[in-house]
Amino acid sequence: MHTLVIDTATEACSVALFDGDKLIAGNYAKLGRGHAERLVPMIAALPGNGKADAIIVNCGPGSFTGLRVGLSAAKALGLAWSVPVTGYNCLGLVAIMALVQQDGVDGVDVAMHGGHGEFFVQPYAPDGKAAGELASLTPEIAAARLQYNLIAGSGSEKLVSLCDNARALSLWPDARQAMRLPEHARALPAEPVYGRAPDAKPMAQQAKTR
């Protein structure tokens, strides 16, 4: 059974093709921008155009645009190949990647760049299960709420600079690591987790603030 993994939720853009849990081929690029241009050619460069029996996609939270690029491609491929599409949580994968690298820690706080200078943060226990709620916070508030000494993710360096006794592990989610997630964690609905509402005020509110 082949699985295609698509991850465009952050500055990184990655794809991977697995046979069972075994990685057949993959690609990872730290793009910043341009996921919408690079993603489909990256998939096409995989063996057999990346054709798989199932598709798994990073559903966020992350860059709004990035999430939509990955989910749109995943859903379109699911339609074209008549295969199921499921999702995983962005911070959950970063947590697993950190825990694999740093064996024996008592847990990890994941911090990823969000919008408006905020970070998406969430603590994870050593078994990779979430140990608290997801939140979008300013760096200062996020730093004050950290639970562990290890901080992983794109926002880790910044948070470490704001507190004592913490270690940063700069990490971005990588599709090639996705099979490390427990099965239930990669079987989430393929729906975006934006983590923040759109920036728009209804007219009734606009009138009041004017």
Binding site: V40, I43, F64, R68, L77, W81
Partner: peptide, 16 residues
């Protein structure tokens, strides 16, 4: 944002 959704969808369908 909307254009990208339709265009990426189209690209993925065309490729597949």
């Amino acid at each position: 944002g909307g254009v990208m959704v339709g265009l990426v969808t189209g690209k993925a369908l065309a490729m597949a």
